[in-house]
Simulated assay, not measured.
Amino acid sequence: MNPATPFPIGTPGKPWGTAEKAEWRSRQVVRRSYQQEVVEPIKKLRDHFDVLQYGQLDYAPDQFPLYAVRSRDWDDTLPTALVTGGVHGYETSGVQGALQFLRQHAADYAGRYNLLIAPCISPWGYERIQRWNADAVDPNRSFHADSPAQESAALMQLVAPLDGQVLVHIDLHETTDSDESEFRPALAARDGVPYEPDGIPDGFYLVGDSENPQPAFQQAVIAEVAKVTHIAPADGNGQIIGSPVVAPGVINYTVKRSGLCAGVTNATFTTTTEVYPDSPRATPQQCNDAQVAAVRAALDYALAQG
């Protein structure tokens, strides 16, 4: 989007109200099927895992059941690992990578972890290839008390009983060209602030927690992902998406204070993956494989710490 071109919804400099949000929602169209691409693959896992519905989104006239997959032989003496995908519904490899991990590798951790995996937290957004939910709210800024996002509130309720038990949480995301062409301009318009163009990093990177950075953990994940796809370099300012690069392919955010999904537990080891699916150097399958490599590296590193 040309920054000189006003966003097609709302008045520049004025935050959206109910009418503008309704207009934005009316423009969102279904482009793929949550039922076919997510729910049906989850149901096929029932022979080996417990599948539970942990909530339901109500966006009239649509309703979306929310599913999580967990280890069948749950053992409270084992550490718990949480894997989340599709917090931003448009980030395809986060969803499909979580499902691929379940199919191909989750069984390898039987007797070593209790696994809890929520592959698609935002199915309304998944179907519309959209970052926000139907209320024009970003679920990945909404993991806090009195959350305005149904998606975030449901996941928080799911994991609340596990307080103190989660050793590792990896949240699977993407950074796409559409962040710059569509989603950042929409955010600026919604909030009534000027749109400030930024670049899109070419490659995979991680977002750690600035209050619990675990640098060796982050680097262990980067090392494994680098075997699958390329790692994003720092820009000319030594940054990735406006944040200082603290190690190759790693930046840090204030995860809990920002309401990010990676802060939904008090896990010792947490990270957010960012795959770049629009790179000419990466295929969709490589993107899924990178997510799987990140999950495996995170789980293996945390286990190795004793």
Rank of each mutant, 00 (worst) to 15 (best):
D138G: 04
S147L: 08
P161K: 15
F143E: 14
L167D: 04
D163E: 13
S142V: 02
D138H: 05
P161R: 15
L172Q: 12
E151R: 01
T175V: 15
P148N: 09
L162G: 05
L167N: 01
E174A: 06
L167S: 08
S152Q: 08
I170E: 05
T175K: 11
V137G: 10
N140H: 09
P148G: 03
E151Y: 04
A149K: 09
S152P: 12
H173A: 12
D138A: 09
V137H: 05
A149D: 08
E174Y: 06
T176R: 14
I170F: 08
S142E: 03
M156C: 08
D177K: 02
P139Q: 05
D177Y: 04
L155A: 09
N140L: 05
H144F: 14
D138P: 10
V137Q: 10
S142T: 04
A154H: 10
V159Q: 13
R141D: 15
L167T: 02
D171M: 04
P161S: 14
P148S: 10
R141M: 12
H144N: 14
D138R: 03
V168R: 00
M156H: 02
P148F: 09
L158Y: 05
E151W: 02
L158S: 05
Q157K: 13
E174M: 12
E151Q: 02
L172K: 03
P161C: 15
E151V: 08
P139K: 02
V168D: 00
V166M: 03
S152A: 15
P161D: 11
N140F: 03
Q165K: 15
D138M: 07
D177G: 08
H169K: 00
H169Q: 03
Q165E: 13
D163S: 15
V166P: 01
D171A: 06
R141L: 12
S142D: 05
L167V: 01
V159D: 09
V168M: 00
L167H: 01
G164L: 08
V137L: 08
F143P: 04
M156N: 08
H169I: 00
D138Y: 04
V166E: 01
S142I: 02
H169R: 00
Q150V: 06
V168G: 00
S147G: 09
T176I: 14
P148A: 05
L155M: 11
